[in-house]
């Protein structure tokens, strides 16, 4: 009887020791997602005035540098297109030249129209800020005198997968 009691005590103490060393858990389920991210921004409001020419030559083209553009995309092979809301006056051409971020390709100086055209292609999963953006205004003598006018240039990031 005495031996039996000691065995019982021993067993329970062992049980207690196991309990003391044990750990308990709690769980949570975390649900997450990353959606498509395609953001583009530009800075600068360029002003271009053609007011000179070398005698015997076409009016001298002017450029506006110091503008920048930035992009964030988690897509692959995205492109940037550009367009203007209304056509340029006859004899005037407005062009844009966007510097390409790493791994992408710029189409260089590209004339803008109401139909969107590619200005940068092959943009893949990157975020890059303060990239160069230059505008150029060209005129023929036939354009004559054109009063001050504005055009809104719209840049769109498109086509990525």
């Amino acid at each position: 009887m005495k031996t039996s009691s000691f065995l019982t005590i021993g067993a329970l103490v062992a049980f207690a020791a196991v309990n003391t060393a044990s750990a308990q858990t709690a769980t949570q389920t975390v649900t997450f997602q990353v959606t498509a991210i395609n953001q583009i921004a530009v800075s600068g409001s360029p002003s271009l005035v053609i007011n000179a020419a070398a005698a015997g030559s076409a009016p001298t083209s002017v450029t506006a540098s110091g503008n920048t553009w930035s992009v964030t995309t988690n897509h692959s092979t995205a492109s940037i297109t550009a367009s203007i809301a209304s056509a340029m006056p006859a004899g005037l051409t407005l062009s844009a030249n966007l510097s390409a971020p790493a791994g992408a390709t710029s189409t260089g100086l590209t004339a803008l129209g109401v139909t969107a055209v590619n200005v940068v292609t092959g943009i893949t999963k990157l975020n890059s800020a303060a990239l160069g953006l230059t505008y150029q205004l060209d005129a023929t003598a036939a354009a004559g005198v054109v009063s001050s006018s504005t055009r809104v240039v719209t840049y769109t990031i498109t086509g990525g997968v």
């Binding site: 930035s70 964030t72 800020a129």
Partner: peptide
């Protein structure tokens, strides 16, 4: 859900 950047770039 991660769905945007603070700013482009």
């Amino acid at each position: 859900t991660v769905n945007k950047a603070a700013a482009a770039g």
